[in-house]
């Protein structure tokens, strides 16, 4: 049976959009957490890390309730922005942003915290603000951590299943990503097609990880 490429492209599109948006959100967030010390910091860190310990179905369930047009938030989105997040690609993106947030923030925050404190302090004594210090000194010296964050987010989004199923369902061309396509094919006993999808995801994930480790080795040995 020929393979339908649409779930693969949809998966790659979802992973790319999520990674790009999380890069924009995650870098300043990681910088803020790494450079500041405030009373509610443990709470913020815990909230960001929650998706790591919660089953995807729990996150998916609460997001489904929140995004539903019958809820206050979902209804407001529909009335004001004409946006329905349940069973739509946009909903998948928003859910993936929340679910993959720790995979972007944690490596970058750890990378920034591992840099010598004296670099940051030297920059401050030279009149630069924490934001200027982050962009001009800290992030350029933190490339492996940045790349790790990007790749882990991309790879994790590719592998999402439970959350995607809860929020997006199984709509061909809209929300049926590769992991759900595999599940479908197995349900229909189309093992050859399931094999093809699974092998593609396996190869893609392996290639991504190889890229990360090769790049990190090159950066750390230069």
């Amino acid at each position: 049976m020929p393979i339908d490429w649409e779930p693969i492209w949809l998966t790659l599109r979802l992973a790319s959009v999520t990674t790009l948006l999380l890069l924009i959100i995650g870098v300043p967030l990681a910088g803020w957490l790494a450079l500041s010390n405030f009373r509610l910091k443990p709470l913020v860190e815990s909230l960001i890390s929650l998706p790591l310990v919660l089953p995807p179905s729990v996150v998916g369930f609460y997001l489904l309730l929140a995004f539903s047009p019958t809820s206050a938030f979902g209804g407001w989105l529909l009335r004001t922005l004409d946006l329905q997040l349940v069973f739509s690609f946009s909903g998948l993106v928003v859910a993936s942003l929340l679910y993959s947030l720790p995979f972007m923030v944690h490596p970058i925050q750890a990378g920034l915290e591992n840099l010598p404190v004296s670099w940051r302090e030297a920059s401050y004594t030279l009149g630069k603000s924490p934001t200027q210090t982050l962009w001009r000194v800290l992030l350029p010296n933190c490339k492996p951590a940045l790349l790790t964050g990007i790749i882990l987010t991309f790879a994790h989004t590719i592998g999402e299943f439970g959350l995607v199923l809860m929020i997006g369902g199984n709509l061909p061309g809209q929300t049926r990503v590769a992991s759900i396509a595999i599940y479908n094919e197995v349900e229909l006993l189309h093992f050859e097609t399931a094999h093809a999808y699974a092998a593609l995801l396996l190869g893609l994930s392996l290639a991504i990880l190889l890229l990360v480790y090769s790049f990190n080795k090159r950066v750390t040995t230069v």
Partner: peptide, 30 residues
Amino acid sequence: LPPQQRSIGYVFQDTALFPNLTVRENIAYA
């Protein structure tokens, strides 16, 4: 006053030079 608003020059024991910048860029940084 935060360090940014104090007129100081600080030479750290480990120099704290920024590895991503050249010598000129390090000096011209501020």
